[in-house]
């Protein structure tokens, strides 16, 4: 039995809705430099962080374990603003999420960074 039927339905729906935007971004070959002023969804950011980032960034995973506490607010901003991600610095390509989803992740990580007023781990 599929334990996440609703999740999969919703994820597919969102993916379809963003298809046009993603295609444009992919064509332009852009990573996603995000300005510090952009405000995403904290709630959704936590979800996408777990869903996308934590597939690799876990203890014993293929990338360094990360939680919001792993960096300060400034360090997280730097990572996202410079689009630094991956060993080759390839940035946040569409396979990691839509621009909105990456922005949500950024919001969540900055809001709960090590030096933030409301620091938190990502649960679990």
């Amino acid at each position: 039995m599929d334990p996440f039927p609703a999740f999969r339905r919703r994820f597919r729906k969102e993916a379809q809705m963003k298809l046009t935007k993603l295609a444009v971004i992919a064509l332009l070959g852009l990573a996603l430099p995000l300005s510090a002023e952009e405000k995403g969804s904290d709630t959704k950011g936590k979800f996408y962080f777990k869903k996308s980032c934590k597939t690799c960034h876990v203890k014993g995973g293929s990338a360094l374990e990360l939680t919001p506490l792993s960096k300060t607010q400034a360090q997280w901003r730097k990572v996202f603003d410079a689009g630094r991600h991956g060993k080759a610095g390839e940035g946040f390509s569409p396979k990691f999420g839509t621009p909105e989803q990456i922005r949500d992740i950024k919001t969540f990580l900055i809001n709960h960074a090590s030096d933030s007023p409301q620091p938190e781990t990502c649960g679990g």
């Binding site: 609703a6 969804s41 709630t43 959704k44 979800f47 996408y48 777990k50 203890k59 679990g124």
Partner: peptide
């Protein structure tokens, strides 16, 4: 003690 987490759909803020 580490544990897993059930992933449920996020809602709008």
């Amino acid at each position: 003690v580490p544990k897993g987490e059930f992933m449920f759909l996020p809602w709008d803020d």
